[in-house]
Design a protein around this nucleic acid. Structure first.
Lengths: 219, 219
DNA sequence: TAATTTTGTTAGATTAATCTAACTTATTAT
DNA sequence: ATAATAAGTTAGATTAATCTAACAAAATTA
């Protein structure tokens, strides 16, 4: 059994590998807000437990075992987020911190029940995929809204940034997963977009926002 | 903020005081399966934090502050148990271990939402009272089934022992909170009872069982 | 390529929670 | 009332996770 702290290292390694590719000690240290020597010694410990493939001065990698365990923690995290939104009526901007704690609960039945009550969901409330029971995760190939062209229509499929601030920004504009967005125009200077969706006819979105929205192009 | 470990000491002190009155180091040590010197040093620490009133060689007592914090943890535990049974359809024999972990989650909204979805319940699935938002707990005056007399009718209000084994024993006999039990006869030798309830006409319950069942007498 | 900066490691200290062994105080039994 | 037993404390060691300070390796820049 791994400690809660070890679980947090595994999860961070897994998420960072999915975001950036190569992970090093400095980045992991920054992400976890834990000093580098502590990270180094934890990497050695996780290496002894065959969860991490560690070599001095080399990038950090999870072993297959480590990937599986990390995937299962993220599965619990995302199932929880889905449960909190769907069954407990919390907002998608409020569930992260709670899921961050509940993901460490040790109880297969508890999470199986969640999964069942939710109807075996494939994604969480932010559109991120839920790893399967073997910890495997499949990312659908989405496009950034910022990579779409004028005239195109696309469905909001996921958000990259899940900070409460960004999600509240989207709430304030009635933007949620599933809305169909039509790109009216793109400002060449700053790449901001004028889009329409739902009842909104001409909403301006900055490039910073468009880069954090993932969409599925229509037709 | 208290650590998860400190919370477990507070909760044990609170529960033991409700069961037995005076609590000493030996008992607390046994309950938590932690050696006595460790318990002593934790008592000193909790005393420094004004949660426990500690004097060498004297019985252990929670301060008002300690009682409140313990009550709030037990509130979270019992709300969780109720939620798991009512909203997630788990059996009353399966919820303790999960609640034991979820009671440490730090998130007022999460537990407020539970409370709201459950309709502000006053008792948990085992009939134990749920402390209010200030951590206060009110025990109703129930009778042990073993203290009832022949011919009396009483409603199953709570169970004292919440071990999975005992609860499965009750499940197997269709005994649940709320069932109206009529005492047909009492065997003088071993104090076992023959009772009827629901569709069961002559169920034999040993004194060990009857002592662990709390009832509310009818009329 | 040599100097400088960044990244990573080693060594050793610290804290919280635990333990065992030895000792002290309180209670019980003779 | 004294001896024996039980309960509680003190002292000191251990483990996991953290830190700072000092050093070493790798990468970048001049």
């Amino acid at each position: 059994m791994n400690s809660l702290i070890e679980e947090n290292y595994l999860k961070a390694l897994f998420n960072m590998a999915n975001e950036a590719g190569e992970v090093n000690v400095t980045e992991l240290s920054r992400r976890l807000e834990i000093k580098m020597p502590t990270v180094t010694s934890m990497m050695k410990k996780l290496s002894d437990k065959k969860l991490v493939l560690y070599e001095s001065y080399k990038p950090l990698r999870l072993s297959e075992k480590g990937k599986k365990e990390a995937g299962l923690i993220i599965r619990k995290h995302r199932l929880t987020e889905m449960f909190l939104v769907e069954k407990m009526h919390l907002g998608w901007e409020d569930v992260h911190d709670i899921a961050e704690q509940i993901e460490h609960i040790q109880s297969p039945v508890f999470f199986e029940k969640m999964d069942e009550l939710l109807g075996y969901p494939k994604v969480d409330p932010h559109g991120s995929p839920i790893p399967d029971k073997s910890g495997k995760i499949v990312w659908k190939e989405y496009n950034k809204l910022s990579d779409c062209r004028e005239g195109e229509t696309a469905k909001l499929a996921a958000v990259i940034n899940t900070s409460s601030d960004f999600l509240k920004f989207l709430n304030g504009r009635e933007m949620r997963l599933g809305v169909k967005i039509k790109i009216r125009s793109i400002e060449p200077f700053d790449k901001s977009m004028v889009v329409s969706y739902g009842k909104r006819q001409a909403e301006v979105l900055s490039n910073v926002v468009c880069e954090r929205i993932l969409v599925e192009k229509e037709g």
